[in-house]
Design a protein around this nucleic acid. Structure first.
Length: 603
RNA sequence: GGGCCUGUAGCUCAGCGGAUUAGAGCAUCUGACUACGGAUCAGAGGGUCGGGAGUUCGAAUCUCUCCAGGCUCGCCA
């Protein structure tokens, strides 16, 4: 319904300018315009849209808001095009104008949406502006090699995937990058340690499991912290690796392969796909970063380390905070890698990704780090004029006690175990329900439903929360069958599928739709909001807005379903209601698809 | 101490500068199953939007200040 809203906005703006020509031309001279402030109605009883502009214009126009509103309405009454869309506008309260769309208009819109595969959401593919067509890089998930994916990776992975899906659907060219931690000091430690405890792992594929690697990694870390000689050998191993020693590289590759296999299992379960491009990828570009910074006179050697001092960001002592890009020992650190990544991503193809927008989905704790890195990238002039660089932060995952989520024994929770538990719990619930209802279902059905519900619940619980705040993780809440949860949304779809099974042909094309119940109209109005919601998610990168919408749509549908018969209705109501069922199902499916959540016909 | 984030119903959270009455969900209480799956629906109670000041015709929303909590602040990522 964005097109309608835009067209209304233009009509009202014209009316405003016709009513107050002098003020309008004055505004034009100073480079601005009179803004009618058309927004969706704040409450259903106020209609579909409201115009707020009259209140703000009262002072400059030296008239009362109500008389401005009246003048706008007088102009609108002359506009045939406007009158074909809207019922007679009403002045309310101190000077709001309430607009209610005509039923013919809503009906025409819903008919269009029924025919449209994209459900009214415009695609940018036809657009030609450079900014809109350039690549969007989304950096998310980013686990570390030789470690298991744990609950800390959950939010980045799920939120990043959803943002990627929304932008892809809108027609952006999206590069989903997995910036895995596959380089740096930890590999020196690990290789040095493996040489003594499991040398076969360095020359043979599959010699050790990831679980063992994780154990070895912990041991190596401990040795590194306690043993000075081991620290020395570790550093030597890092240097060998970074200099491209073939044996070291082979060992490194084997370790990475082993981790990668494990990551793939998780990504497959979550149905998330991204392109791996780890920190090691940027190794050849690190030196250039230093050279560039030197050339732009940003580089300062302090205490033996090469740094860039940040502007307007101070440390404990109130002095400008340095960002170290090359350590005393000549090694590079993560700031260097991140800078190299930004430089590469914005560089033109084939020496870069040619990105116009780069998005980082990482925890809020890294906000300072990214603020610094972004600032340096800007000062080094690596970001093109139209380029956009954003950190999309999210809060911690907490347990129900409000503390950081841990297992009973105090360890970080493995992502694999977390997903297993969600699926197990979904299965237990399902079996209990089947027993209570006396239903018999195949094992395959039970496993499939439990898996879908479990994964959907985990994803939805995360996405439905505003990502900026900390997130309280609770299996009980996310798997609850009522409330703003995945199972509630899935159930709405199952009900529609049930109607189809009972003989309702959802695919019939309807020549003449006929609606007369308020429940039908409120469902129609909700369905027509979909394009606006997608627009907002794209703009604000807040998937919870989409979740809220889908939940409200499900509620409105359930009300409709409860209060209005579909299959037993007489024509043309029957077909018209079936059409609404179909569009509701399509909207829920598409919406959930954009969240990365699978759906079901039966559960 | 500096920076960033958070503070809204008993709990978990939405909330886009707009309207008498700040919204959901959970929990609590009361109703509704011979219409398509009751995993639902209808309704009730529950709030000084952390405190204070300011900007504005209008503030949960913007600004300042104070209070509380979290994260972060030089060679880990």
């Amino acid at each position: 319904m964005l097109i309608i809203a835009n067209s209304l906005s233009i009509h009202i703006k014209n009316a405003l300018e016709q009513a107050f020509p002098e003020a309008a031309s004055k505004a034009h001279e100073s480079g601005s315009t009179l803004d009618p402030q058309l927004v969706p109605a704040s409450k259903p009883e106020f209609g579909d849209f409201q115009v707020n502009g009259a209140l703000q214009l009262a002072k400059p126009l030296k008239t009362s808001p109500r008389s401005i509103a009246l003048a706008i309405i007088e102009q609108l009454q002359k506009n045939k095009e406007f009158l074909s869309l809207c019922k007679s506008p009403e002045i309310a309260g101190p000077g709001f104008i309430n607009l209610t769309l005509k039923e013919e208009c809503l009906q025409a819109e819903i008919s269009k949406q029924l025919e449209d595969e994209r459900l009214g959401v415009q695609s940018l593919k036809s657009s030609s502006t450079h900014k809109e067509r350039s690549t969007v890089v989304i950096d998310f998930s980013s686990p570390n090699i030789a470690k298991e994916m744990h609950v800390g990776h959950l939010r980045s992975t799920i939120i990043g995937d959803s943002i990627a899906r929304v932008l892809e659907f809108r027609g952006h060219k999206v590069l989903r990058l997995n910036h895995v931690g596959d380089w740096g000091t930890q590999f020196g430690m690990l290789i040095a340690h493996l040489k003594t405890v499991a040398p076969e792992a360095l020359i043979t594929a599959d010699a050790v499991e990831l679980g063992d690697l994780v154990k070895f990694y912990r041991q190596a870390k401990q040795r590194f912290d306690e043993d000075i000689i081991f620290q020395q050998t570790s550093r030597e191993e890092v240097i060998k690796l970074q200099n491209g020693n073939s044996k070291s590289l082979k060992a490194w590759k084997l370790i990475c392969d082993q981790s990668r296999k494990e990551f793939e299992q998780i990504y497959n379960r979550l149905d998330i796909h991204l392109e791996e491009r780890g920190e090691s990828f940027y190794n050849p570009y690190l030196k250039k970063v230093i050279d560039d910074l030197k050339d732009s006179n940003l580089l300062i050697v302090d205490d033996g380390a090469k740094c860039v001092f940040l502007e307007d960001i101070t440390g404990k002592d109130g002095e400008a905070l340095p960002m170290i890009v090359q350590k005393q020992d000549g090694g590079f650190n993560y700031a260097t890698t991140d800078l190299a990544a930004i430089r590469y991503r914005f560089s033109a193809i084939p020496n870069g990704d040619g990105a116009g927008r780069v998005i980082y989905v990482t925890d809020a704790g890294q906000a300072n780090h990214f603020a610094g890195v972004f600032q340096i990238a800007k000062r080094a002039k690596w970001i093109p004029n139209e380029g956009c660089l954003e950190h999309v932060p999210f809060g911690l995952v907490q347990g129900e006690n409000g503390k950081k989520l841990k297992t009973r024994s105090g360890e970080t929770v493995r992502l694999r175990d977390l997903l297993d538990e969600a699926v197990d719990r979904a299965e237990t619930d399902l079996r209990l329900r089947l027993k209570q209802e006396g239903r018999i279902e195949s094992e395959a059905f039970i496993k499939h439903v439990a898996n879908t519900v479990g994964i959907a619940a985990v994803k939805y619980a995360d996405l439905s929360q505003n990502r900026i705040t900390n997130y309280q993780f609770s299996f009980n809440k996310m798997l609850a069958l009522q409330g703003n949860t995945a199972p509630y949304l899935l159930y709405a779809l199952v009900r529609i599928a049930g109607i189809a099974r009972k003989g309702g042909n959802l695919q019939t094309t309807i020549a003449s739709l006929k609606f007369n119940e308020p429940q039908e109209w409120s469902l129609i109005r909700e369905l027509l909001k979909f394009d606006k919601v997608i627009d907002e998610v794209e703009e604000e990168l807040l998937p919870n807005r989409l979740c809220t919408y889908l939940f409200e749509l499900s509620q409105i549908f359930n009300r409709f379903y409860d209060q209005v018969p579909v299959l037993k209705a007489v024509e043309p109501s029957r077909s018209s209601r079936l059409a609404l069922c179909r569009l509701t199902a399509d909207t829920l499916k598409l919406g959930m698809n954009l969240l990365g959540i699978p759906t079901l016909e039966r559960m």
